[in-house]
Amino acid sequence: MLEVKNLVFAYPGQDTPWVFNFTVSPGQCIAVHGASGSGKSTVMNLLAGFLEPQSGDILWQDRSILSLPPWQRPMTSVFQEHNLFEHLDVQTNIGLGIHPGLKLLPDDQQAIENGLQSVGLGGLGKRLPGDLSGGQRQRVALLRAILRQQPVLLLDEPLTGLDSEARDLLRQLLLEQKSRGTIIILASHDKEDRRILADSVYRL
């Protein structure tokens, strides 16, 4: 269970701070939407540990994770873009998600191979991100997030700008993750994404 309790944050010069409160159970997806600057990305960054709140708490399985650095939190983020290291090939990008020093077991490599096949990127493991389309890059980013096997996925407009085929494939992947008990926090402008994926929707 992920609990966000009275999480307060304001950027310098911001008059009214945001206050976030919500709870998500395993296998649930909550979606947030709102105008630009409404705080969608802010809540994602607070959860991931990229921003520090003024007060409040984030609990994971009843224990506070607020003091943990990003790499120790049970979460993986996928943003709309800039999710991959441009100078490293697809396999290495994914492999670094499994082990930060790329010390991979044969099983890990097999999982990467299978994952790439399952998202329609078989044979593209040696390509650099710059050689892939937007949809292919997002599939790589999502595959890395999934193979990290963290219990919470933070998705900030992950499907925006993709063609319908890529969207369908990624939605399917996310639904599979949900069914395996992964918590998904989704920030999305797209009504259809929210309808298909989210169990509850919040407007910021």
């Binding site: 991931a48 540990g49 990229f50 650095p69 990003p70 790499w71 120790q72 939190r73 979460m75 993986t76 983020s77 943003f79 800039h82 999710n83 991959l84 290291f85 490293l88 290495t92 670094l96 998600g97 930060p100 020093g101 790329l102 990290r148």
Partner: peptide, 22 residues
Amino acid sequence: DAASRQQADQLGILGWYRWRWL
């Protein structure tokens, strides 16, 4: 860039690993 640093932070690519890979 900032995006790469955030990714590295989240993936735990720190210290020697950050030097080695990034």
